[in-house]
Design a protein around this nucleic acid. Structure first.
Length: 103
DNA sequence: CCGTTGACTCTTT
DNA sequence: AAAAGAGCCAACG
């Protein structure tokens, strides 16, 4: 039985390059459509009390996860860094705002 | 975009 | 173990 956090992390890890998703969608996929915030909490906490295989958050492309209204949201390393990473993946960002959301 | 309300998990006390 | 605090959010006004 996978916990909510495991499901979320697994889903995020499956996000292919150049593709982005939203916290809400992840929450829905994990069976908690109203737990969008919990998803963010999990990605941020990154205490990883379970997956010891993943010692660092860098194993998870959390930068490919954005807010549902198109904004970048937050990032442990800084939202600015997140934007750079997304642009590097081929996703266009403008002033902290997502232009072409790839869904 | 800002403020408030709602919902959920994780961490700390 | 139980309660309180915090957090990469969503929807509505």
């Amino acid at each position: 039985m996978m916990t909510f956090s495991e499901k979320v992390l697994a889903a995020v890890k499956k996000i292919p390059p150049g593709r982005v998703t939203t916290y809400k969608k992840l929450a829905e996929q994990c069976g908690r459509p109203l737990a969008a915030r919990a998803v963010g909490r999990i990605l941020n906490a990154s205490k990883f009390s379970f997956f010891e295989n993943i010692s660092e958050k860098e194993k998870i492309p959390c930068h490919r996860v954005i807010k549902s209204d198109g904004t970048i949201g937050g990032y442990s390393k800084g939202a600015k860094k997140k934007i750079v990473l997304l642009k590097r993946e081929g996703i266009n960002i403008n002033n902290g705002r997502l232009l072409a959301k790839n869904e």
